[in-house]
Amino acid sequence: MPASAAVTVDLRTESVDAVLGRVERSLGVQLDRSTEVRKRRSIGARTDRGTWVRIERRARERIDGQGWNGVECAAVLQGVAMPEWFAGLAWSDPDDGSMWRADETQLVTAEPMKPTDRAELPDAWWATLTESLDALAAQTTTRVATPDTVTISREVVAEVIQKAFPEAGIDISLDEWATAHADLSWANLTTPECYLLDWEDWGMAPRGLDSAKLWVSSLDVPEVAERVRHERRGDLGSRTGKLMSLFYCSKLVPYVDEGAAVRMEALRLLEELESPR
């Protein structure tokens, strides 16, 4: 089957026993099925040697020239609170035009963040997050970030913003770039200790990409959004950071009511960005 015709699979509902068996044989581990965490295109589980294995399926057209070994490549990053990487493997499935990858990493016992956890985070947690994002941004890489498996670019950002606000007359020049996680959702952060999980999409991105995503996803809890804005004020206050904030707001604007916080923030950002520099 051609790669472009890859079948859409939801791993939350599909049987993947053969895939799990292959991973176990290749890595020399036994997966604890009772600890499985299933998402649409990934599965994670503990192993019998006290590690964690994450398995991802991706259509071939979603894999560009830099590869998709982001978790492995992230092992070189310094000063970032993240699981240590140990081993990995990848293979092609000729039947449905997809690629599979498995990575064995340090088992982090801190739990992925739940929505109710966000308002109760201590100062030490925020300090770790800020230090990690600052350390990450200071490093360089040849990788380009792929948020939502799409390579970030000026054209991608412009298309999203213009779809939500076709009359917007702003300059979408992305002047500042820095290394980013590129999938900094609350579900990819842990508590009580702060770790950043799921590194498959990291790379160079417009400044503030991570901070903007976390801020926009916090707008339903104003005090948390304000804390994100305070902690990441350097990123979010920059012009490129404002464009990233508008980018993530614009993804949601078509699906919210007129008075929704994300729409109001998007309009504020548009006004600021339309003002002379």
Results as ranks from 00 to 15, higher is better:
residue 202 W to N: 00
residue 241 G to Q: 07
residue 103 D to T: 11
residue 133 L to H: 03
residue 262 V to S: 04
residue 120 E to C: 10
residue 165 F to V: 03
residue 226 E to I: 07
residue 195 Y to W: 14
residue 134 D to M: 04
residue 20 L to C: 13
residue 213 K to N: 08
residue 115 P to H: 09
residue 272 E to F: 08
residue 119 A to W: 07
residue 238 S to K: 07
residue 230 H to K: 10
residue 153 S to W: 11
residue 158 A to Q: 14
residue 67 G to R: 06
residue 239 R to S: 08
residue 38 R to Y: 09
residue 233 R to K: 15
residue 223 E to N: 13
residue 137 A to W: 05
residue 73 C to K: 10
residue 109 T to F: 10
residue 246 L to Q: 03
residue 173 S to T: 15
residue 246 L to N: 02
residue 169 G to H: 12
residue 98 S to Q: 02
residue 276 P to V: 04
residue 46 R to K: 08
residue 229 R to S: 14
residue 89 L to I: 11
residue 247 F to E: 02
residue 11 L to C: 05
residue 65 G to M: 09
residue 169 G to A: 14
residue 259 G to E: 10
residue 172 I to V: 15
residue 55 I to F: 05
residue 225 A to F: 04
residue 26 S to D: 12
residue 186 W to R: 00
residue 100 W to R: 03
residue 180 A to Q: 01
residue 277 R to M: 04
residue 231 E to K: 11
residue 134 D to W: 06
residue 95 D to N: 14
residue 196 L to F: 05
residue 256 V to P: 06
residue 268 R to C: 09
residue 127 A to Y: 07
residue 31 L to C: 07
residue 41 R to N: 14
residue 4 S to A: 15
residue 276 P to S: 12
residue 30 Q to E: 14
residue 71 V to K: 00
residue 232 R to E: 08
residue 40 R to F: 09
residue 28 G to A: 15
residue 159 E to G: 11
residue 21 G to H: 08
residue 38 R to P: 00
residue 207 R to D: 01
residue 124 A to L: 10
residue 29 V to R: 02
residue 115 P to I: 06
residue 246 L to K: 01
residue 95 D to W: 14
residue 33 R to Q: 11
residue 65 G to R: 13
residue 213 K to C: 03
residue 14 E to V: 15
residue 85 W to H: 12
residue 97 G to E: 09
residue 217 S to R: 12
residue 53 V to E: 00
residue 83 P to V: 00
residue 269 L to Q: 02
residue 216 V to G: 01
residue 194 C to V: 01
residue 33 R to C: 05
residue 107 L to T: 05
residue 25 R to P: 06
residue 36 E to L: 15
residue 131 E to C: 11
residue 33 R to S: 12
residue 195 Y to T: 03
residue 266 A to Q: 00
residue 166 P to M: 10
residue 46 R to C: 06
residue 261 A to E: 13
residue 113 M to P: 02
residue 136 L to V: 05
residue 89 L to W: 02
residue 213 K to M: 10
residue 51 T to M: 01
residue 151 T to H: 03
residue 80 V to N: 01
residue 217 S to F: 08
residue 207 R to T: 13
residue 72 E to Q: 09
residue 55 I to M: 12
residue 18 A to N: 14
residue 67 G to Q: 09
residue 184 L to A: 03
residue 16 V to A: 13
residue 10 D to K: 06
residue 160 V to W: 02
residue 56 E to G: 10
residue 179 T to A: 13
residue 60 R to N: 13
residue 141 T to Q: 06
residue 2 P to D: 15
residue 13 T to G: 12
residue 105 T to V: 05
residue 239 R to D: 09
residue 216 V to H: 05
residue 172 I to N: 02
residue 111 E to Q: 10
